[in-house]
């Protein structure tokens, strides 16, 4: 049975003077205990809204949500002790030091005074926050705030962890560190729901990925399943002379099993292929026979980028993640 279960969640916002926005439009979700599920979706897909509903911050217009069998909407006060949350924007007190922030969170989770201080120190060490330990958070970089906020989510070693874009704005080293932390928590049985715009992150961390767009889950499965769902391997060739483009398309169409796509000013051609190695041999032989010169040729499995593009019609690139979001909002 799933530890986090949401069914038919809807939430509509009607900003003054504009059309209603369906932030959630019948979203279903099931996260088995002790696994990591990633919500993957473009800006405005409804990732944050989903996390806010599950973490008791907002009430959906309709639908139901349960965590560990407890009804989130009916008993939010029973949910809060078992969850840890790190929202999209670092929620730290600017005037408190890193240590004071974590200690305050510990005390408000009702750890005893001593226990709370011990745990704060452990997290300072774990997240490499010594520098921020005794200085007010104000004046620290976005990445540092982010780490303090993430540490805040782990104060009680919660049963369920919600991380909304946990690594947006972290430098590569901190990001790898964060992945380690998440992996070790899962090793201890924590259930994790994270959102991300980084396909690589979903690939690395998640047992299961739910692709969401316009407030709905439009595909779910493991990373491999999602990739397989949009076809097997594909053949990619790059021509030396774009003038050969139409002849090459003809060849690819004959040995592939999809309509070839053409990019890179007519030089980059791609086609799906059921038995890619064999098809590639035929393609190369035929192109050679016609005297078409190649700059590059190869086969690859689809990436999550392909999945994303195919399913949502948007391209997800790292550029989509607004760098400013990590600065908090001032």
């Amino acid at each position: 049975m799933s530890f986090i279960e949401a069914a038919g969640l809807t939430k509509t916002y009607t900003p003054r003077g504009s059309k209603p926005v369906h932030a959630l439009d019948g979203l279903d979700l099931a996260v088995p205990q002790g696994t990591v599920t990633a919500l993957l979706g473009p800006n405005g897909a409804g990732k944050t809204t989903t996390v806010k509903v599950l973490t008791t911050l907002i009430r959906p217009d309709s639908g139901s949500a349960r965590i560990g069998g407890i009804d989130v909407l009916a008993h939010p006060q029973q949910i809060r002790p078992i969850i840890g949350v790190s929202g999209q924007y670092a929620a730290v007190d600017e005037y408190l030091t890193g240590f004071e922030n974590l200690d305050m969170v510990g005390r408000l989770y009702h750890l005893g005074a001593k226990q709370s201080r011990i745990r704060a120190q452990e997290l300072i060490t774990l997240f490499d926050l010594e520098e921020a330990k005794n200085r007010p958070v104000k004046g620290f970089s976005g990445g540092m705030r982010r780490r303090i906020d993430l540490a805040g989510a782990l104060v009680t070693r919660p049963q369920v962890l919600f991380l909304d874009e946990p690594t947006t704005g972290l430098d590569p080293r901190s990001r790898l560190g964060m992945w380690d932390v998440i992996n070790s928590l899962v090793g201890q049985g924590t259930t994790v729901l994270l959102t991300t715009q980084y396909l690589e992150e979903a690939d690395q961390l998640a047992d299961s990925i739910s692709v969401i767009d316009d407030g709905k889950v439009i595909a779910e499965g493991t990373s491999d399943e999602l990739k397989a769902s949009i076809g097997g391997q594909r053949i990619e060739i790059t021509l030396v002379d774009p003038g050969d483009s139409s002849a090459a398309v003809e060849v690819l169409r004959r040995f592939g099993n999809s309509e070839p796509s053409v990019g890179g000013e007519g030089r980059e051609l791609t086609v799906d292929a059921a038995h890619a190695p064999e098809a590639l041999q035929h393609v190369l032989a035929e192109l050679g026979a016609r005297g078409i010169r190649l700059f590059d040729a190869g086969m690859r499995r689809p990436t999550l980028d392909d999945v994303f593009l195919r399913l949502t019609g948007h391209v997800a690139t790292e550029d989509d993640a607004p760098a400013l979001q990590t600065q908090g909002r001032h």
Partner: peptide, 30 residues
């Protein structure tokens, strides 16, 4: 509340169930 008893993971022990009044005072003080 059944908060600590349902914990299956290695949760940090929360303070022995204090009364709601004591929690309320503690929260207000923090």
């Amino acid at each position: 509340m059944t908060t600590t008893t349902t914990t299956t993971t290695a949760a940090t022990t929360t303070r022995a169930a204090a009364s709601p009044i004591a929690d309320w005072f503690s929260d207000g003080w923090i």
